[in-house]
Design a binder for these strands. Structure first.
Length: 301
DNA sequence: CGGATAACACGTCTGGCACG
DNA sequence: CGTGCCAGACGTGTTATCCG
């Protein structure tokens, strides 16, 4: 079993299709088929269940995927550790919630890119749960998430604090009127939605009409058009408030403030690019218990 | 449409051998 | 003993085609 085989296997598992995985990897379908067949023969087990619309992981495949993620992640980390220099360079994959990406990150990323032009920075957005999974699977070097993280394998560094508010169309007088409207939310797994769910539950508003949206812009647009209300950071709708398009209604503690944290794997090598990124976080990414040890900085044993 | 298979091309690895 | 050359084996990739 070679690491290249595991990379091919992971791609097929993620895509759910040999053809799509081949396209993504830059191989032809037959080659990927052969690699998977070879892996299956070597392990004497079927890793995928074949059907006429692609493939799905078998139980054995799911077991192997967990190991493949770790093995490939460690190999990439080892490569990075050996090639990393003091001058930040190379790839840096960052994840973020849509709200942080829209409001907080543009300046930070621009400033980072200006300081370290040799770093190939990539930003992908998603919901907190998805982002956590991607960090755990070594797909992201780190990610901004909209909740306090206590996962044993992750280190969390406080990044920003957002003041949340109920956002409605400008014509809505107060929050009592606001909560009679449909509620526009992200899909489950979004931290803002979790706060909103708890807030609604505390206020006995469990029967509210929920409309799920995939994009922040769609929610803000829907609120502006009077379709419904939502719970969002004030910073996200600052412009719309100034233009008189929406009205914000304060929410009480403990729902009012939400921390955005930057999370990364505890056991991962911290490249110079990532180290520089952390240093650029508000407060320099340093908190009493989050200083990086020598080991984590890759300078220890 | 997506996966499997056969046939083939090409590059790399490996073992054997000769030579300095 | 180290080095260079060569032939065959092997691995990795392709195209073409078939099958469900």
């Amino acid at each position: 079993m070679e690491s290249a085989d595991l990379r091919v296997f992971r791609a097929v598992a993620r895509e759910g299709s040999i053809t799509k995985a081949a396209l993504r990897l830059g191989y032809v379908q037959s080659n990927v088929t052969a690699r998977i067949r070879q892996l299956e023969a070597e392990l004497d087990t079927e890793l995928f269940v074949r059907h006429n619309r692609g493939v799905t992981l078998s139980a054995s495949g799911r077991t192997l995927l967990a190991y493949a993620d770790k093995i490939v992640g460690l190999l990439d980390e080892a490569t990075q550790a050996l090639t990393s220099s003091d001058e930040p360079a190379g790839p840096l994959a960052i994840g973020s919630t849509q709200t942080a990406a829209a409001v907080r990150l543009p300046k930070l990323l621009a400033s980072y890119y200006e300081s370290y032009p040799n770093v190939r920075l990539s930003l992908s957005t998603g919901h907190t749960q998805t982002l956590l999974e991607q960090v755990l699977h070594y797909e992201l070097d780190g990610s901004f998430i909209g909740c306090e993280c206590d996962h044993p394998e992750l280190r969390a560094i406080p990044a920003f604090e957002e003041e949340l508010a109920i956002v409605s169309a400008a014509s809505v007088a107060d929050w009592a009127e606001a909560v009679t409207k449909p509620i526009l939310v992200f899909a489950k797994g979004c931290s803002y939605r979790d706060v909103l769910d708890r807030w609604l539950s505390v206020n006995g508003l469990t029967q509210s009409v929920m409309m799920e949206f995939g994009m922040l812009e769609a929610i803000v647009g829907g609120v502006t058009a009077g379709l419904g209300i939502s719970m969002l950071p004030k910073s996200v709708v600052r412009k719309q408030v100034a233009e008189g398009l929406v009205r914000i209604h304060d929410v009480p503690e403990p729902f009012r403030y939400m921390k955005t944290e930057f999370v990364m794997r505890k056991d991962s090598f911290v490249s110079s690019a990532l180290q520089a990124f952390i240093a650029m976080l508000p407060g320099g990414g340093v908190q009493p218990e989050s200083r990086l040890s020598d080991v984590e900085k890759g300078t220890g044993t």
